[in-house]
Design a protein around this nucleic acid. Sequence first.
DNA 1: TGTTAGCACTCTCAAGTCTTGAGTGCTAAT
DNA 2: ATTAGCACTCAAGACTTGAGAGTGCTAACA
Lengths: 343, 343
Amino acid sequence: MLTDRQLLILQVIIDDFIESAHPVGSRAISKKDEISYSAATIRNVMADLEEMGYIEKTHSSSGRVPSQKGYRYYVDHVIAPTIKEGNLSIMKDLIRDEFIDFEKLVQKSAEVLSDLTNYTSIILGPELFETKVKQLQIVPISDYSAVAILVTDSGHVEHRSFTIPEDISPSDLEKLVNILNERLKGVSLARLPQVITTEVVSLMKVYVRDFEKSFNYLQSAFFQEQPVKLYIGGITNLLTQPEFNDINKVRSFYQMMENEDQVVNLLKTPQHGIRVSIGNENKLDEIKDFSLITASYQLGNEQKGTIALLGPTRMEYRKVITLLNSLSNEMTDALYLWYKNNG
Amino acid sequence: MLTDRQLLILQVIIDDFIESAHPVGSRAISKKDEISYSAATIRNVMADLEEMGYIEKTHSSSGRVPSQKGYRYYVDHVIAPTIKEGNLSIMKDLIRDEFIDFEKLVQKSAEVLSDLTNYTSIILGPELFETKVKQLQIVPISDYSAVAILVTDSGHVEHRSFTIPEDISPSDLEKLVNILNERLKGVSLARLPQVITTEVVSLMKVYVRDFEKSFNYLQSAFFQEQPVKLYIGGITNLLTQPEFNDINKVRSFYQMMENEDQVVNLLKTPQHGIRVSIGNENKLDEIKDFSLITASYQLGNEQKGTIALLGPTRMEYRKVITLLNSLSNEMTDALYLWYKNNG
DNA sequence: TGTTAGCACTCTCAAGTCTTGAGTGCTAAT
DNA sequence: ATTAGCACTCAAGACTTGAGAGTGCTAACA
């Protein structure tokens, strides 16, 4: 357990380092308004803090830098108790236009978030497994091709074009669509592949032998694909952070961000509410010098998405956590309204 | 005009520099198999080439580096005459799956192109102004919201969700959709806004007073937006190029690429066929150290898109130009088939 | 006994100096 | 016309040096 004085000094060190990115020395600390001890005294305290692992030196005679454990303590004991559920009306301006699309909204939110913080924001769109088919439609484009359009009860639209097998006539196609609609309406996306294989495919065969093949394609195109949309805002923001001076870091970071699956995986968490991953606590080696703050939002009861901010470990935790907390609440609220309307 | 010997040496210098990124010295040149002169002789030739502006020194006693004028000459007089219309079957593997989507195809092409070259590829989707409305549909999601879906005769799908004005009933909505379909079918996207305002809006008013407002939104959402899709592949590739060692270059480059409008603008060209922009010839300052090779492809007669590769001025022009040339032919062919099917 | 001043010590960072190697330009010989 | 030879230039890396920031320890002080 830390004494009041130790905690105070730890706090000062972290705050200063977050701002300056430079190791903090005893003299600098003693000059702060909130500090009334001499540099020598500070040094003693710092030695203690270092022994306990909360701060460390970059070399034998350098100032101190917060360690991962230090940040952890700071976040858990200093920041967390002061965060209150809040609502900063971040989205209010975005929703001014009542016709705005949900996808657009999320996209915009990501941009705003990154602008506000100067970090990189990542938003995972809501999972769609539990949404249900509202309408499935096939629009013929020519004799050879058509577009299949799927609309869910959440207003989400998926579409794919495909070629029409030769031995199927326009009237057959129409019948097929009717059957599909009848059978699939109200089925959740999660159950869709199963329903199709067990119930629908056999029916299809009545109309056309080769349709099975086409249908398999459609099925895979629609439903076996990663259905999670990823929105990223302000990747270039991180380039302005001093820890990004090493070109190799930039390389590996961008290479990581290019791999969507990896990013999605990084954000997915069963956990509720705010989660803070500092440095090595992150799953991926590429961001072991970063901190990732994630917050989940909910759509209805089950489906949820995640919003996150990625920045250097030397991150403005208070600001970021407050912001994410508010935004996730606001998104949950917005989605609740949306969902209620649909139900 | 350059003598044979001068041209030979210019060529050797450029080829060597393209490979190594280091200034080329007279001794290194004289050791090449294709060169039978001594270093001293080479030096005389190099002095001439420098005087003519085709090569330059980085400092008074360095080897020579091709100048922009040098690259230009090389591309115009060495590469261009040897390029023959070709078809490398780049897309063949991609189209193996006959059900593939056009958008997917373009996306994949961008990836392949960047993998093949280690530069950044940029593809502008085909302009849709000349495609015609195939079907416009409104799917009600709840009492308060609906999704509007527009399908064009090229198989392109656009969709937006919107809220339904309170004083409109489901049956009204159905009537509206019928009217819209009837009036708008076959209208090109370019003419759509005009047709809507002159013919349709007045009709709308019969059904509901406030619908004008909603409709304006839909119209703007669909048709006043940048309708060009941009596909970018392998931005990180450039990070491995030695000219990207300066972190500030990376910054400004990424910031430029983040601005889609700017990139689209950069690629748009009335010109047909292959275009090579070297260094300062580029419109944007941010890429004055780069070369941009663009090739256009056509859809039917009018609409066209652009594929491009962005790399350092020290670029493998021969390879890149051959590749782009082939791919643009293949894309035109593929689109021709597609389009023919639709007509 | 907790706090502080003082001092020797350590390490980084930037500036300055040296050395090496690659490359040039010029001249004189072939 | 071509080439060998030589003096000269410059960049880049290695090494040195000094200043500055910071530490730890000790002894004195309230």
